[in-house]
Design a protein around this nucleic acid. Structure first.
Length: 589
RNA sequence: GUCCCCGUAGCUCAGCAGGAUAGAGCAGCAGUUUCCUAAACUGUUGGUCGCAGGUUCAAAUCCUGCCGGGGACGCCA
């Protein structure tokens, strides 16, 4: 079956343009900018007129004449300088809704070709607490993995732990200073080492900021950390043993936090997993003749003619002999290409690192590591506080992710209380509802801003349950469930087909039929905000429908069946769309 | 200094493969409840799309310059 009504229309119009001797691409139909005049529009005649050497209106008239008898259309009109205004027939809409109701996949076609896609996101660092900065990567990356899976692609998600860089040397030397008696530090120390970690997660989270500040203030302290990093990477047994504890302690905390956000990864690999491939990666660079010594480091020059500014070289090995950010990312590409032969690798990482990825991708292509694999940096803007500056706690410190989610849940609980909702729920369900609502508020707010723009984190606004928020959408879905439950309880649930009978029916049906298009567009642009907009528009269309028609009380059985079917499809689509955003819908609110 | 991103209604943000009267949410104003959850719905006020040029039949959208905000710029990640 065709992808969507919009795609069917585009094909119909494309054939008409082709019959006029023009490119079928001119037939592209889009949702109308003037819903008062049409459901869809096509502006192709305006653009094609020049190529055809014909007047736009004449061309539009010719195309209109070729499509006017299609069963898809109730009306086609040429307006203004040559717009084609298309109004769908109710029969076409009824048929599309019938198809959606019949398929578990809601009529959304699976992607063709099916691709294998690695999504790299989250990117937490061992020894550093996850903070608000990780929020966007996690939420956007998770939505992308859900979206691509939904469309039938094969996705491999990887958290890509930061576990091999200087921060490890910093923490190890800090522990050595504070607890010099531990067995990991003695020269030539060897196994066995203690089975339990010498530090808790709480201690660890305080060690790093201390060490980092000290190294910034004191070059000798920094050199000490670099030396430890080099020794760790070279395999010094005591350091490796301590490092394993640090990784385990951090991972346990991360798993908890990601779990709370309902974010899951196929792979929990880290930079360290790429370490065994570094030698081979560097050998490949040397074999291509692109690696060279410079100032004691091994580099690859990636600047190209035509660059607006000279791109700095990739540093394969530091003058200390350590692996850096570039090194592990390049070795990781080798690993991923070898393990999965992906068609595409997406890196959901802060926009500020865009130069880094340009460098890495260029070096990888020069070395032939990315043959047949596309790589994209999916950058995003920063999360700011209400003052427009990067988000911080009142005291000016970094806000931990954990604390942020706690705040969202508390705000949600308070709002539920005020609204007198969830009062008759048992305490466990009430807490779970508050958590689900709080997280939905945060996720929806984050995802509805376009990726690359910065946005203001204003919990009071997100948690406000009116307007374009996650909770509004959850509420809409819950209300539909409530209607269907009531209909069942009163024995008024009847099966039947959608048959459009009112403007509110029609607006809802049109919105439902546009679901596949919204999913595909969001995936193609790697832009979940498109899906947010769609879901909100659908919820609004349903709210209007709900206000205008009393569904359960509708005496005409066929009409009641149609409206119940619309409600059922709406719930399914809304839940599906929210699932792609990583937002769960509670049973009741 | 060079380069990148952003500048759209009072506030927070969409729109930017050029196209008709620039949209939404919030706030404001006026309404809607014997009826399935009013956390809703309807109507309405509000914008020289940062500024100035250019390309085009047509520019918020493409190009150039300027102003304002944020960011990046070889051994941190």
């Amino acid at each position: 079956m065709a992808a969507s009504l919009q795609a069917e229309l585009s094909a119909l119009l494309g054939a008409a343009f082709a019959a006029e001797g023009l490119d079928a691409a001119y037939g592209r139909a889009t949702t109308s900018d003037r819903p008062d005049l049409a459901d869809f529009q096509c502006n192709g005649a305006l653009a094609a007129a020049k190529a055809a050497g014909r007047r736009p209106r004449d061309l539009a008239d010719a195309v209109a004449a070729r499509v006017k008898d299609s069963a898809l259309l109730a009306a086609v009109e040429v307006a203004g300088p040559g717009f084609l205004n298309l109004r769908l027939s109710d029969a076409a809409l009824d048929r599309a809704l019938g198809a959606m109701a019949a398929e578990r996949g809601l009529g959304v076609p699976l992607a063709s070709p099916r691709e294998r896609i690695v999504v790299d996101f989250g990117g937490p660092n061992v020894a550093k607490p996850m903070h608000v900065g990780h929020l966007r990567s996690t939420i956007i990356g998770d939505s992308l993995q859900r979206l691509f899976r939904r469309l039938g692609h094969e996705v491999v998600s990887d958290v890509h732990l930061g576990d091999w860089g200087l921060q490890m040397g910093l923490v190890i030397t800090e522990i050595a200073r504070e607890k010099p008696g531990l067995p990991y530090f003695a020269a030539g120390a060897n196994a066995p080492f203690p089975a339990a970690s010498p530090v808790t997660i709480e201690e660890l989270e305080e060690l790093y900021p201390r060490a980092s500040a000290a190294a910034k203030a004191d070059a000798a302290r920094n050199a000490e950390a670099q030396k430890a990093t080099a020794e760790l990477q070279a395999g010094r047994p005591g350091y490796r043993a301590l490092w394993r504890h640090l990784v385990e302690v951090s991972r346990a905390a991360m798993t908890r936090e990601f779990g709370r956000l309902d974010v899951h990864f196929d792979l929990w690999k880290g930079e360290s997993d790429a370490d065994p491939l570094i030698g081979e990666m560097i050998a490949a660079m040397r074999a291509k003749g692109i690696a060279e010594e410079s100032e004691g480091a091994l580099i690859v020059r990636v600047a190209q003619d035509g660059d607006k500014t000279e791109l700095p070289p990739v540093i394969l090995t530091s003058s200390q002999g350590t692996a850096l950010y570039h090194t592990t990312d390049l070795a990781t590409i080798l690993d991923r290409v070898r393990s999965f032969s992906p068609d595409l690798i997406l890196y959901v990482v802060d926009q500020r690192q865009h130069v880094h990825f340009e460098q890495v991708f260029r070096a990888a292509r020069l070395a032939g590591l990315l043959d047949g694999t596309r790589a994209e940096h999916i950058g995003f803007g920063t999360v700011n506080g209400p003052d427009g500056k990067p988000f911080r706690t009142r005291a000016g410190g970094t806000m931990k992710l954990q604390d942020l989610i706690d705040m969202a849940r508390a705000a949600a609980a308070e709002r539920l209380e005020e609204a007198g909702l969830a009062r008759d729920m048992p305490p466990g369900e009430r807490d779970a509802t508050a958590e689900a609502v709080g997280i939905a508020a945060v996720k929806f707010a984050d995802l509805s801003a376009y990726r690359t723009s910065n946005y203001v984190f204003d919990l009071d606004r997100f948690i406000r349950f009116e307007g374009k928020t996650g909770p509004y959408l959850q509420y809409a879905a819950v209300r539909i469930s409530s209607v269907l439950r009531k209909a069942a309880e009163e024995g008024r649930l009847v099966e039947g087909k959608v048959a459009i009978a009112s403007p509110a029916d029609r607006a809802l049906a049109l919105s439902l039929a546009a679901y596949g298009e919204a999913l595909m567009s969001a995936a193609e642009k790697r832009a979940p905000n498109i899906l947010c907009d769609y879901a909100f528009g659908l919820a609004q269309a349903f709210s209007r429908f709900y206000t205008e028609h009393h569904i359960v009380g509708e005496p005409d059985e066929a009409l009641r069946a149609s409206r119940l079917a619309l409600a059922r499809i709406t719930r399914a689509v809304l839940e599906d769309a929210l699932a792609c955003l990583g937002i769960a819908v509670p049973e009741r609110m």
